[in-house]
Simulated assay, not measured.
Amino acid sequence: MSKLTDVVEFRIANGYYAIDVQIAREIVEMMEITPIPRSPDYITGVTNLRGEVTNIINISKLIGLPESVASETQRIIVIMPDASQGSNVGIIVDDVRSVMQVNEEDVEALSESLSSDVTDYVKGIIKVKEDASDTMRLIIWVDMQKVLDQIIS
């Protein structure tokens, strides 16, 4: 019997990505973000989320993706504090598509010949069959825990 894992699928620019659902605390609409002077370019700033100061990360800049234009569909995925060493952290995405179950048989590992910088932060490529056709859509499964561990340590 194959293992199922729940992931949150989201879009950044023209690509589809996912993170493990257990490290996502909630998904909120985009809100006002206050920039922090002299912070790294991947830190968009901070926001007040229900009385808690939350650091907002631009995941596009952090993992080297093309940056998108702000839109009404942008969301913030708030990460569980225990995944971010007690910090309140949210990541900006262009759109949240769904929470879905992934069968381990539908996940393909990245080639070991690729740079370790790439393979360190990608758990695998999720292959999803589109509803009405035989075409496959590929979703990059980001290891958000490793990404957070590097920037917070």
Score class of each variant (00 low, 15 high):
residue 3 K to F: 13
residue 12 I to F: 09
residue 139 I to V: 15
residue 99 V to I: 15
residue 110 L to G: 00
residue 1 M to D: 07
residue 44 T to H: 11
residue 51 G to S: 01
residue 6 D to K: 10
residue 53 V to S: 01
residue 152 I to Q: 08
residue 105 E to A: 12
residue 89 V to G: 03
residue 52 E to L: 06
residue 143 D to P: 03
residue 89 V to M: 09
residue 79 I to C: 02
residue 147 V to T: 03
residue 25 R to L: 11
residue 22 Q to D: 11
residue 58 N to Q: 04
residue 148 L to I: 06
residue 29 E to V: 10
residue 98 S to I: 09
residue 77 I to L: 05
residue 78 V to R: 03
residue 3 K to D: 14
residue 111 S to I: 01
residue 143 D to K: 04
residue 19 I to H: 05
residue 46 V to G: 01
residue 93 V to I: 05
residue 123 K to G: 03
residue 35 P to D: 04
residue 78 V to A: 07
residue 27 I to H: 00
residue 134 D to H: 08
residue 136 M to Q: 13
residue 122 V to M: 06
residue 69 V to R: 10
residue 112 E to G: 07
residue 19 I to D: 03
residue 124 G to V: 03
residue 153 S to W: 08
residue 133 S to P: 06
residue 106 D to C: 12
residue 41 D to R: 15
residue 110 L to R: 03
residue 98 S to M: 13
residue 13 A to H: 10
residue 42 Y to S: 09
residue 109 A to N: 12
residue 42 Y to C: 08
residue 99 V to C: 02
residue 32 E to M: 14
residue 29 E to T: 12
residue 19 I to Y: 04
residue 42 Y to K: 12
residue 100 M to L: 15
residue 68 S to W: 00
residue 140 I to W: 12
residue 44 T to K: 15
residue 37 P to Y: 08
residue 95 D to L: 13
residue 42 Y to M: 09
residue 27 I to V: 08
residue 73 T to A: 08
residue 148 L to F: 07
residue 109 A to K: 14
residue 111 S to Y: 01
residue 90 G to H: 06
residue 151 I to R: 02
residue 35 P to F: 06
residue 69 V to G: 04
residue 110 L to W: 00
residue 136 M to E: 14
residue 34 T to W: 05
residue 82 D to Y: 13
residue 48 N to L: 09
residue 105 E to G: 09
residue 42 Y to D: 08
residue 131 D to L: 14
residue 23 I to M: 11
residue 105 E to D: 13
residue 83 A to K: 01
residue 120 D to T: 14
residue 127 K to Q: 13
residue 108 E to Q: 14
residue 22 Q to H: 11
residue 106 D to Q: 15
residue 125 I to F: 02
residue 117 D to I: 10
residue 36 I to P: 00
residue 44 T to N: 11
residue 91 I to W: 02
residue 112 E to D: 11
residue 54 T to G: 04
residue 132 A to W: 14
residue 20 D to I: 07
residue 8 V to W: 09
